[in-house]
Design a protein around this nucleic acid. Structure first.
Lengths: 209, 209
DNA sequence: GTCTATAGGACGATAGAC
DNA sequence: GTCTATCGTCCTATAGAC
């Protein structure tokens, strides 16, 4: 018994693994409590660390949140690109979607919803932060303001082939996704997110293809 | 200078006025910070009270939140009843709407949106708490679970005359309202809530009347 | 109905040893 | 990379005087 957990059950993980662990634990806790309700103590406990040990990795509580959001963006970009069959080199660039032939708003939304349905925790993270960050002094305020603007722009481009007023359709698609996700999170037993979205897509985009 | 503010600028308000002041200040602060981010000290300061003075009125921090939510429900019930021309005696009973001739989901949503557009602060209060209260141990968790269930039921009844699948339409109407409100709160300059809703109503319910 | 005083924690962050 | 120790601040709530 010499190799693993050799000092009081506190594993001394290599840097990258420790970082991933911190991001995972934080994601879960922020989804539950929001940023104002998050305590560094809880995160540290969840990682088997002390608070100063945790701060060594992330600098500050604000820094922790930023790290989580950046990590999620990277993951989501990769997943979406993979689902839509894009080439891996530049996965993080949402904007590229709008210029990819054969990809329209309907397909992108369907892909997003299907991915989201498999990870309620992440959806909840964004739902909570989206509301909390309306406050101008919230550490993620600018991040979410940019995100909404960028999402609406890309969705508008994607909606252009589908209707006369793509901006309005983009707005409605975003609103519907956000709203259905909240209902699903509150009553997961009653609601199937994919079914609810497919019905909504029929309303938004017209009957199937 | 004997009647008002006679002791260190701290007005000794009569009970009901003080209560209203507390609820107003709390509403504003919860809308900004959520419940986890709310501090009794800030509420007390905003009322010109000490913290124990504040606690005398509301009992506890949880009690304060409950008081705010109950107060809002009462006000909203009154307003909606007035806008739809119902008799005042029983304004708080949402359920009655479903049995009122000439009232359907389209009209009720239009009335709700038009009222909400005049009070962004209240809309934000609900948006923030709706997300925060997804956590099972949040003091408003049960309140919002009930609220969502009840709203969906009433909306379903109201949608019955309009389509074949009223439950689905009800879900979509709720989702769309919630989602458009978030977008409006984040970028009030770019979005007019009433316009956005009227466009969405055309999508959801079909072209005008 | 409002105060002073205070209990009793939890919080985020820093300094410095190992 | 992680620790111990500690600082200073903020928090909700209670007890009891006025």
């Amino acid at each position: 018994m010499s190799s693993a957990t050799n000092r009081r059950d506190r594993a001394r993980l290599p840097g990258p693994e420790r970082r991933r662990q911190i991001l995972d634990v934080t994601t879960r806790l922020v989804a539950e409590r929001g940023f104002w309700g998050l305590s560094m103590q809880d995160v540290a406990d969840g990682c088997g660390l002390t608070v100063p040990g945790l701060l060594h990795h992330v600098g500050s509580k604000d820094g922790l949140l930023v790290a989580v959001l950046e990590h999620r963006d990277a993951e989501d970009g990769r997943s979406l690109a993979a689902q839509l069959g894009l080439r891996p080199p530049e996965p993080a660039d949402w904007t590229a979607l709008a210029r990819t032939p054969g990809v329209d708003l309907r397909r992108v939304c369907a892909a997003l919803v299907r991915r989201n349905a498999t990870q309620p925790e992440i959806v909840r993270l964004f739902a909570v932060l989206e509301a909390e960050s309306l406050a101008p002094d919230h550490p993620a305020h600018d991040y979410f303001a940019d995100r909404q603007a960028k999402t609406l722009d890309v969705f508008t481009e994607l909606a252009r082939p589908l209707c006369d007023d793509p901006r309005t359709l983009a707005r409605q698609a975003v609103a519907m996704m956000d709203g259905l996700q909240i209902q699903w999170l509150r009553a997961p037993a009653e609601t199937d997110l994919v079914d609810a979205w497919d019905a909504a897509a029929a309303t938004l985009f017209g009957r199937p293809r």
